[in-house]
Deep mutational scan, measured.
Amino acid sequence: NKFNKEMRNAYWEIALLPNLNNQQKRAFIRSLYDDPSQSANLLAEAKKLNDAQA
């Protein structure tokens, strides 16, 4: 399933972002599970926040 693969990839990328705190990571990951079709958008948002907090 395409969404499962995208979701799994996004999950690990988000989990490993160095500048997000655990609460932020959990919120993004919860959103991934709520709507796997938004994986790419959620990952992009997480990366933006990660960069902003660098």
Score class of each variant (00 low, 15 high):
A54K: 04
A10L: 06
P18M: 10
R26I: 08
D34M: 14
N4L: 08
L20P: 00
K48H: 11
P36S: 05
I29Y: 13
L43P: 01
Q38Y: 09
F28M: 04
N22C: 04
E45A: 09
N41C: 03
A15L: 15
N4Q: 07
L49F: 08
K2W: 10
K5V: 03
A27P: 02
D35V: 10
K25I: 07
L16W: 13
E45T: 10
N50V: 01
I29R: 06
S37K: 13
N19T: 06
N21I: 08
A44C: 04
L43Y: 04
I29W: 14
N22R: 13
A40T: 08
A46C: 03
P18E: 10
L17E: 01
D34F: 13
A46N: 00
K48P: 00
A15Y: 15
L43W: 03
W12E: 05
E6Q: 10
Y33P: 01
M7K: 02
A54G: 07
A46G: 02
N22P: 12
A52E: 12
L17T: 02
M7D: 02
I29H: 12
A54M: 12
M7E: 02
N21T: 11
Q53V: 09
L42I: 09
K25F: 12
I14H: 00
A44Q: 12
N41H: 12
N22L: 13
N9M: 15
A40S: 10
Q38W: 10
L17D: 01
L49Q: 06
A10N: 05
M7A: 09
D51R: 14
Y33C: 04
R30A: 05
L32V: 05
N9G: 05
E13C: 14
L42C: 02
N9W: 15
I14F: 04
Q24D: 03
I29S: 03
N22A: 11
W12N: 14
D35L: 08
K47V: 05
L32T: 02
I29P: 00
S31W: 12
L49M: 11
E45M: 13
A10G: 02
Q24Y: 03
P18R: 15
E6Y: 04
E45F: 14
N41S: 11
K2E: 14
N19I: 02
A40C: 04
L49T: 11
K25V: 05
N4K: 03
N1R: 04
R8I: 06
F3L: 13
Q38D: 09
N21Q: 11
N22H: 11
A52G: 13
R30N: 03
K25P: 00
Q23D: 08
L42Q: 04
R30H: 05
E6F: 05
K5H: 04
A27V: 10
Q38T: 06
D34V: 15
Y33Q: 04
S31M: 08
A27Y: 14
L43D: 00
D34I: 13
Q24E: 06
S37R: 09
I29L: 11
R8N: 05
S31F: 14
L20C: 01
K47Q: 05
I29A: 07
L20R: 00
I29F: 15
A46V: 03
F28N: 00
N21H: 09
S31I: 08
A52L: 09
Y11E: 12
K48R: 11
E13Q: 07
L43E: 02
D34P: 02
N21A: 06
N19K: 10
S39T: 07
A52W: 12
A46Y: 03
K5N: 06
I14E: 00
R30S: 05
N4V: 04
W12M: 12
N19L: 09
K2G: 14
S31A: 12
D51I: 12
S31D: 04
L20T: 00
A46T: 01
E6L: 10
K5R: 05
F28E: 00
A40M: 13
Q38N: 11
K5F: 02
A10I: 11
K48M: 11
R30D: 02
F3T: 13
K25M: 04
L32A: 01
L17M: 12
R8K: 05
K5Y: 03
L42D: 01
A15M: 14
L43C: 04
A54V: 13
L43K: 08
D51L: 14
S37F: 08
A40W: 14
R8L: 11
Y33F: 13
L42N: 03
E45W: 15
N1L: 05
L42H: 05
L17S: 08
Y33T: 05
A15S: 14
A46W: 01
N50E: 02
S39D: 02
S31Y: 08
A54Y: 11
S39W: 14
D51T: 09
R8E: 14
E13W: 15
A40L: 11
R26Y: 14
Q53P: 07
K48A: 10
A15D: 03
N1F: 01
L17N: 02
S31N: 10
A40H: 08
Q53G: 06
S39V: 11
D35S: 12
Y33S: 03
P36V: 07
A44D: 11
F3K: 09
K47F: 10
K48T: 09
K48Y: 10
P36Y: 06
K47I: 08
D51Y: 14
A10W: 06
N9E: 11
Q23G: 12
E45I: 15
N19H: 09
E13F: 15
A27L: 07
A44R: 10
Q23W: 15
D51P: 01
Q23T: 09
D51G: 11
I29G: 03
Y11L: 15
L32E: 00
L16Q: 14
A54C: 04
N4G: 07
K25C: 03
S31H: 11
N22Q: 11
S31Q: 10
N41W: 14
N50H: 02
Q38M: 13
Q38G: 08
Q38L: 08
Q23I: 14
N9L: 15
L42R: 07
P36A: 06
F3V: 13
N41I: 12
K5S: 03
R30Q: 04
A27C: 05
L42T: 08
L20K: 00
L17I: 01
Q53A: 12
R26G: 05
N21V: 04
L32R: 00
E45N: 12
F3I: 09
A52C: 03
N22V: 11
Q23C: 05
A40P: 11
K5W: 05
Q24M: 05
E45G: 05
A15K: 15
E6G: 02
A46F: 02
S37C: 03
R26V: 04
A44P: 01
L20G: 00
S37T: 11
A15P: 01
K25S: 01
N9P: 02
E45H: 09
R26W: 13
A27H: 06
R8Q: 10
R30L: 08
L43G: 02
P36N: 04
N22K: 13
L43S: 07
E13L: 15
F28G: 00
P36G: 05
D34E: 08
S39G: 07
L43M: 07
A44K: 14
N41K: 13
D35R: 13
Q23F: 12
A54R: 02
A44Y: 14
I14G: 00
Q23R: 11
A52K: 09
N41R: 11
E45Y: 13
S31L: 07
R26D: 03
P18W: 06
L16I: 07
N1D: 13
W12V: 09
R26F: 12
E13R: 15
N4M: 05
K25H: 02
L16F: 11
K47W: 12
R26A: 06
A54H: 13
D34S: 11
D35G: 04
K48S: 08
D35Y: 08
N41Q: 13
N50T: 01
W12D: 04
I29C: 03
P36H: 04
E13Y: 15
Y33G: 03
K47E: 02
